[in-house]
Deep mutational scan, measured.
Amino acid sequence: NQASVVANQLIPINTALTLVMMRSEVVTPVGIPAKDIPRLVSMQVNRAVPLGTTLMPDMVKGYA
């Protein structure tokens, strides 16, 4: 199973992502692939993302 990107903490709306905010985990449904973590750094979330939430492409500005 492919690992997805999961929030390692509460990420407030419009926050630029950093490595410490994200972890990889095998979850259902599948979200953004963990291999894309380096690409996500500095991108902003367009909503508040609670701890443990799988990041989906529509949550990150400029990803999709």
Rank of each mutant, 00 (worst) to 15 (best):
I13V: 14
Q44C: 10
R39V: 10
N1G: 15
V20I: 10
Q9T: 12
N14C: 13
I37S: 04
I37G: 05
L55V: 10
P29M: 06
M59N: 06
V45R: 00
L40E: 01
R39W: 10
L10W: 06
N1V: 15
P38S: 13
R47V: 11
P29K: 05
L51S: 13
L17T: 00
N8V: 13
E25S: 05
R39C: 15
I13T: 12
D36R: 03
I32G: 01
Q9I: 09
A48Q: 14
N1K: 04
A7K: 00
V6F: 02
I37Y: 03
M22A: 02
A34Y: 07
R39E: 10
Y63R: 03
N1L: 15
D36Y: 04
V26N: 10
R23C: 09
G31T: 01
A16L: 10
N46C: 14
P12S: 05
V5Y: 00
S42T: 14
V49E: 01
P29L: 06
V45C: 09
L55H: 01
V20Y: 08
A34I: 08
L55S: 01
P12D: 13
A64M: 08
I11R: 00
S42W: 08
V6I: 13
V41S: 03
V41R: 04
A48D: 09
V20T: 12
M59C: 14
S4V: 02
N46P: 03
R47W: 14
T54S: 04
M43W: 06
V41H: 09
L17G: 02
V20L: 09
V49C: 08
K61Q: 15
N1R: 03
L10V: 12
V49I: 13
T18L: 05
V5F: 02
G31L: 02
V45H: 02
T54R: 03
A7F: 02
P50H: 13
G52K: 04
V27Y: 02
V20H: 08
Q9V: 11
M22R: 00
S4Q: 02
R23A: 14
A7E: 00
P29H: 13
Q44M: 11
T54L: 05
V27R: 07
D58K: 07
L17H: 00
G31P: 00
K35N: 15
T28Q: 09
V20N: 13
R47Y: 12
V49P: 02
P50T: 15
V41L: 11
V6L: 06
P29F: 06
P57I: 10
A16N: 08
K61A: 07
N8Q: 13
M59V: 08
V5I: 08
M43K: 07
V26F: 09
M21S: 06
P38R: 03
V27D: 02
V20W: 04
T18Y: 03
G52R: 05
I32L: 07
T53S: 13
Y63N: 04
P38G: 08
V5L: 03
G52L: 13
V27M: 04
S24I: 10
M56Y: 08
L17E: 02
A7N: 01
S24T: 09
G52P: 01
N14P: 00
S42Q: 10
V60S: 01
G62L: 13
V60D: 02
N8P: 02
V60G: 01
I13C: 12
L10D: 08
V6K: 03
A3L: 12
L19W: 06
R39T: 11
D36C: 07
G52C: 09
R23T: 06
T53F: 10
V27H: 03
P33L: 14
V5S: 03
P29Y: 10
G31M: 02
A3N: 13
M43N: 06
A64P: 09
Q9S: 09
V5G: 02
V5C: 08
V26E: 15
N1W: 05
L55I: 12
T53L: 10
K61D: 12
G62W: 04
T53I: 12
S4M: 02
V60A: 02
M56P: 00
P33N: 13
L19N: 10
M22N: 00
L19M: 08
A64Y: 04
V6D: 00
T15M: 08
P50I: 11
I13A: 06
Q9P: 01
V60W: 01
T15L: 06
V45N: 03
A34W: 13
P38V: 07
G62K: 10
Q2L: 13
V60F: 05
K35T: 15
L51K: 09
L55Y: 00
V5P: 01
R23F: 04
G31I: 02
Q9L: 10
D36V: 04
R39I: 11
R47K: 15
L19P: 12
P50R: 10
V49N: 01
D36F: 03
P12T: 10
V26I: 12
P12A: 09
V6S: 03
Q2D: 15
N8I: 05
R23I: 14
M22T: 02
D58H: 13
V26G: 06
R47F: 09
G31V: 02
I13Y: 07
D58I: 09
T53V: 10
M22K: 00
K61T: 13
A7L: 04
L10I: 13
N46H: 10
V60P: 01
G62Y: 10
M59T: 07
N46S: 14
E25G: 05
L17K: 00
Y63I: 05
A3I: 11
A7C: 06
P50F: 11
Q44A: 07
N8Y: 04
A64S: 14
A16F: 07
Q2I: 14
L40W: 02
N14T: 05
T15Q: 10
Y63C: 06
E25V: 04
S42F: 15
M59R: 03
V60M: 04
I11D: 01
S24N: 09
G31K: 01
A64W: 04
S4W: 02
M56C: 15
N14M: 08
G31D: 01
L10N: 09
V45Y: 00
A16I: 09
V45E: 01
R23Y: 05
Y63K: 03
R39G: 14
I11Q: 01
R39K: 14
I11T: 02
A48I: 06
G62C: 14
K61L: 12
I11F: 01
K35A: 15
S42C: 15
P57G: 11
V20A: 09
I13S: 12
M43F: 09
P57C: 15
S4F: 02
M43R: 06
K61H: 10
N8D: 14
G62I: 04
E25T: 07
P29T: 13
M43I: 04
G31W: 02
T53W: 12
L51N: 10
P57T: 14
R23N: 09
V41G: 02
V5T: 12
P38I: 10
V26K: 03
V20G: 11
S42L: 08
D36W: 03
S4G: 06
Q2F: 14
T54Q: 03
